[in-house]
């Protein structure tokens, strides 16, 4: 009997507490930065596309909802010719972000993607590519990759020696 009354009392007190429920959509809640929502493609500090078309996100995707085709620009810099995510299949697991070696693909705290037509949930590169670097700043894969893909010359990257002169005679 006492415990019943106590429960009633506690519930009654809750009337005077701060409300956890927010009046969505009029009121928005704050999501943590690493919340796994809409997927974006980011750019590197030089405003170039970060995605190098390595296909690792597609390989990591458990529902196979990422499809892309790599191509190269006139300097040999590799980028995706198209990049498509079928959000009607996406389960927002974030494996693509984990797999991405260039910080290109990132999940952001935005989930408001509902559509009346499923077809509109197919996002192409134009829909995915954002103007900034997203969560991870300052990284440019091509400057660290150790090969020449038209972004920097051999030996000009991070942690690289000048190219070897094969014809030199010194030991």
């Amino acid at each position: 009997m006492f415990s019943n009354l106590r429960s009633l009392w506690i519930v009654f007190l809750h009337l005077f507490r701060k409300r956890e429920t927010v009046e969505y959509p009029e009121e928005k809640t704050e999501l943590p930065a690493r919340w796994r929502g809409r997927i974006v493609l980011t750019r590197d500090p030089d405003y170039e596309e970060r995605c190098v078309g390595c296909y690792l996100c597609a390989a990591a995707c458990p529902v196979d909802c990422i499809s892309l085709q790599a191509t190269e620009d006139e300097n040999g810099r590799r980028y995706p010719e198209f990049f498509r995510i079928n959000f009607s299949r996406c389960i927002f697991c974030g494996y693509c972000e984990e797999a991405c070696p260039t910080y290109a693909i990132q999940l952001i705290p935005d989930f408001e993607m509902a559509e009346y037509d499923r077809q509109n949930l197919v996002y192409e590169k134009e829909d995915l590519l954002i103007e900034g670097q997203g969560k991870y700043h300052g990284y440019n894969f091509y400057k660290e990759a150790g090969v020449d893909f038209g972004v920097k010359k051999k030996g000009e990257g991070e942690n690289e020696n000048k190219p070897v002169d094969v014809r030199k005679l010194m030991p």
Binding site: Y55, A58, A59, C61, V63, D64, C65, I66, S67, L68, F82, R84, I85, N86, S88, R89, R118, Q119, L121, V122, E124
Partner: peptide, 16 residues
């Protein structure tokens, strides 16, 4: 068995 993109490669034409 690691083939990817099955549920996205045709969706530019039709999502089904």
């Amino acid at each position: 068995h690691r083939y990817t993109g099955r549920t996205a490669m045709h969706t530019n034409i039709n999502v089904s």
